[in-house]
Design a protein around this nucleic acid. Structure first.
Lengths: 349, 349
DNA sequence: TTGAAAGCGCTAACAC
DNA sequence: GTGTTAGCGCTTTCAA
């Protein structure tokens, strides 16, 4: 691996000149400049960024720690963060805490030790005071998707409460009276805020509600399947279900299919996120579209802005609005758009 | 930020001792050791990994460049690579070339300049000779999912040809005689091998084939939708479709739904990957399950093994087998398991 | 317009 | 058992 010194020797100049030519950081006479460039070409010289980082105290790299990389929700956030970072000349090292506080901590520690310029974290549940020493040393950290009350870190999150309120209200306005919810992982702000919004809508509409209609879903598809099974076993199940994420929507549908396929047409399964299944199978008329990409983009933008302006981050919360999207009415639906049936099934071989 | 020097001063020792205590790299007397550890604690000292990397010529970081981060297929690979790297004490910087050769090149260059210990790349189509200088300098690179003939880089890929052959053969064995395929992005090994397997099966079964039954899909859902529309417009469409990835399966179903919902029960839409839609809607009896996670794990393992044993990588291809998975027969299906119908649709509000 | 040299924070060869 | 110090490859101040 050629070093700046090798280039300098070949061009008959000092390493300082090589550096300045490459970085355009001071005037270099044309002829000298040419010689340097020629030497760079000849040796196919590429500056060692680790050395540069050590000097510059900047790695142009940020860290992203998500709590469940397997979930499409987080991979979308990751893609958005990566895209934003790319546009601004940064790289991102991707980490998966897998809902483990210990892994999150280990990741945060090693990333900061590797001198990333900043960190975006979707925090797991639990005590995050381990972040405090890092913050005191000026580490730049932004939370994404979830927020925490016990530590002064800015967060970019959905309007979980309001969005769930609006969705639930619409279901109630459309005549549903018996609503159920399939909850995400307990103990995190998203689930709690969504549940709060769900409950507020029920209160405002004076709708009946009962604990059995709250299904713990735990963010994996299996949780949704269990909820679907539970629904199938009920004498008088709810007519609409608000699932707290896309995988749960799929799970509920799958669970119903397994145990009580006739209910698929009788229970409107909707929720947070556009499930391709729900979209294609039309098991709901509308759903929430969380601003997943924006979550990543805004979090990355806030972080990178703070880094580049060398300003501290203020620990405030940015709420991004989730809109309700209507699925297109099916082409052969009845004019009123209700109770459309499609026959689906196994084709004959 | 405290440095080793600060710790040394506080403990009344040299930086060498601090380093050796922290790395366990030579015997240090108990009492001295304690003092060092105490100083580390007191100052909350964390070694600067950039400095260490400069010295050690190792960053314990690898790069991953995927060609389309938005696709679940690649995010699964990314998750698997990340998980494997974590287990072995490495970090991964995630990049999205977005099927652009230029972006891939820029990413590879900057990652290597940042001294990653190795690179995993899902190569875009096009001329990859830019890798040659890097390889000559000993850069460790592994391709994942796709391979290239024009450059000596090892690859970890699916048995695309064989798997598609087996799936197509099974469709033919089950009585289908009119088969169509929705192709992925052209010019990459996956699409070409899958198409080859498809064609070989048709040849072996003497099934008729015609160009109109090959739909360019281009790897995005829209391509599948277009294929669905095309199918809807045909007088005598194929009875089975092999879509080259999950998004294409979804797209075909969506396209059929929009233009010819009755065909959903008459065309068996299957292909590469387990589409949740196909699984729940039962528009196919079986599908291929590509070993996505293994792809990432094996690629990462090969790379990390080479790094840690300091061996060069041999440019051979590892083929991972894709199995056909059968969807569970629906609970209320007919005993012969054929032509089961489920009524799906919009629930009443 | 250019060069010499210090120094970023760490490790390890060499000395004691 | 411990310390001194060179050096990883770069940037940048200071001097010419």
């Amino acid at each position: 691996m050629p070093r700046a010194r090798d280039v300098a020797a070949r061009a008959g100049v000092s390493t300082a000149t090589v550096s300045h030519v490459l970085n355009g950081t001071r005037r270099v006479e044309g002829e000298t400049r040419e010689r340097v460039l020629a030497a760079v070409q000849a040796l196919d010289y590429r500056p060692n960024m680790v050395a540069r980082s050590l000097r510059a105290k900047s790695t142009r790299t940020i860290g992203l720690v998500v709590s469940k990389l397997e979930l499409p929700y987080y991979t979308e956030i990751a893609a958005a963060v990566e895209g934003t970072a790319w546009r601004r000349g940064y790289n991102v090292v991707l980490c998966n805490s897998d809902e483990s506080l210990e892994k999150e901590m280990l990741y945060a520690d090693v990333l900061l030790a590797k001198q990333v310029d900043g960190l975006i974290v979707a925090p797991v549940r639990g005590d995050h005071s381990y972040l405090r020493p890092h913050l005191e040393r000026g580490a730049r950290i932004v939370f994404v998707n979830r927020y925490l009350d016990d530590v002064a870190v800015p967060a970019v999150v959905c309007d979980d409460e309001g969005a769930t309120f609006r969705l639930t209200s619409r279901l109630l306005g459309d005549g549903h009276r018996r609503l159920g919810a399939v909850l995400g992982l307990s103990g995190v702000s998203t689930t709690e805020r969504r549940l709060a919004g769900f409950r507020r809508a029920l209160r405002e509409f004076d709708a009946p509600t009962a604990e059995p209609w709250l299904f713990p879903g735990d963010a994996r598809r299996d949780g949704g399947i269990a909820a679907g099974h539970a629904l199938a076993a009920m004498d008088d199940p709810p007519t609409a279900i608000v699932a707290f994420n896309t995988l749960l929507v799929d799970g509920v549908l799958l669970g119903l299919l397994e145990r009580a396929p006739h209910l698929l047409t009788r229970i409107e399964v909707t929720g947070f996120g556009i499930s391709p299944v729900a979209r294609i199978c039309r098991t709901a008329r509308y759903t929430l579209d969380p601003p997943t990409r924006e979550l990543g983009e805004v979090a990355a933008t806030r972080l990178l802005d703070a880094i580049e302006t060398n300003q501290p981050l203020t620990p405030d919360r940015v709420l991004l609005r989730s809109e309700i999207v209507d699925f297109d009415p099916p082409p052969d639906g009845r004019p009123d758009g209700r109770s459309h049936l499609i026959a689906l099934g196994r084709p004959r071989g």
